[in-house]
Design a protein around this nucleic acid. Sequence first.
DNA 1: ATAGGGTTAG
Length: 647
Amino acid sequence: MRSFLAPQTIKPPSSPTPSSPISPLCCLSTSILAASTNKNHLIQSLCKRGNLQQALQALSQEPNPTQRTYELLILSCTDRNSLSDGVRVHRRISDDGSDQDPFLATKLINMYSEMDSVEDARKVFDEIRHRTIYVWNALFRALTLAGEGLEVLDLYRQMNMSGTQSDRFTYTFVLKACVASEELVELLNKGKEIHAHILRHGFETHVHIMTTLVDMYAKFGRVAHAAHVFDEMPVRNVVSWSAMISCYAKNGKHFEALELFQETMLAKTESFPNSVTMVSVLQACAALAALDQGKLVHGYILRRGLDSILPVISSLVTMYGRCGKLEQGQRVFDQMKERDVVAWNSLISMYGVHGFGNKAIQVFEEMINSGVNPSPISFISVLGACSHAGLVEEGKMLFNSMVKDHGMYPTAEHYACMVDFLGRANRLDEAAKIIQEMRIEPGPLVWGALLGSCRIHCNVDLAERASRRLFELEPTNAGNYVLLADIYAQAGMYREVKRVKKFLKSRCLQKVPGRSWIEVKRKLHSFTSVDEFNPHKEQLHALLFKLSSEMKEKGYVPQTDVVLYDLADEDKERIVLGHSEKLAVAFGLINTSHGEPIRITKNLRLCEDCHLFTKLISKFAEKEILVRDVNRYHHFQNGVCSCGDYW
DNA sequence: ATAGGGTTAG
């Protein structure tokens, strides 16, 4: 490597640059002459002013660019996102032997990484002999961003063997690498190993590293591990809090997310939530349909002046949508000064889950007309809307336009939407054909959509085919087995039902218990059908029994096919009457005032009997009831449901 | 000597 202190080349006086005519003085001292031809300062200031082309021009006239000059050139190329110019600068650096400078190598790796050219970053790394920890870290970061987590972990092992010590940055990069890869399960152990390194090297007090650890366990779904790390942290900042709240919100622990936010972070610490915190909190409110909590959070957002931040507003739209408050969601959206594709997507899927398919399509078109390009998620949202509203032809057209007009490749989710709305419309052959002709391997999402449709139309043959694939793809997902058993039960094939249930038991697999929530006077109440300790249980059962008897006189026939046990009819009736959703309805009838709608959330799909029961209640009790199940909204009013019995 | 890291929208 050439020293940067090497004597500078002196240009012969016979070839002066035109802009600097030689004065007699210059000939007296070589150093003065060198200074007058030195373009380093010029290049640097051109870079700072963003004038990359002129800087490159000047570079060609400068025989001895300094390290700082190269650094600014690299940064300037990165800013411009100009790969060709970056390569030019890189070549020049190699030409004068500076490519063995670890500082510049680090900068080059970062540059290539920013330009999504991880192969070039890797080349820089491979060619440099003296690898400082900065060089290693830069490559780790580049590979992680490119999703090459496994490669990072392999290099990390090599680095440890070469005797180079990790620093505090290394740990955050390799922890992220553990989750930046498809092979999540295997890498959990790798992450735990790194966790041990971190403790061994005394970094357990380091906020950045420990927060990354929390996030890593969160992404592996290891909530207890994440909470343990978080609890042990001696110092936490707003990012740590946000990471832990997000961990709960993303892993289905919505109550815990709200509790940590309200009862711990706000009440007991000096940490101020920021926009990122609010996004996770709103997500939890949305998931629980906790409208009162959501409104409080909205108020808080306004007071803290976070209401102009795009992700926050999108989350607000989603929260109001998922709480059944479409007008509020629309209002929040209308007040936005600028709208990005995520905000539009929030609005589209808000109308979608409520069954307003045409409105969702209209919003989708408005988005395009306003000059915002649809993202793959826009299509998932609008196709999902078509599904919920039974808009088969519209859905097919949108799907085709995604490929033709927007040049997008459909993902498994897009195909699953297609299969879903074709299947629901009892066009099962067409749905099966879509699966056959997919340009990617059909995954569990797609087969699951087909199986769901088979359940609606009670198609045992196709259901067996779909479930065979599903059992191969996700052998431990109890939901698939239950769905098949459900179909057998509908078809009266109880021996098959028994077989499936026996199989479930032999594998120690359990169906997710049904759970319903209702928010009354700012407090969330949760119900399951098996909870013996619920203080309201007796009262609710008595009320349900009374209602059921009254409605039976008016023609209600309990839909007991959903019960997977071969029992006497009256036992089946007792079971469906104890479903969590009915308990929540009963609780709502007792605890809401006249004219106030009941709003319920459920973690599974609504069963036939609960659907029928709720429809009738909405008529006989003259009560508006909103139920959000795992897929969509049901708006019950005067004996009718907004889904048109099609869900 | 210099450089760089964690939480976010369907």
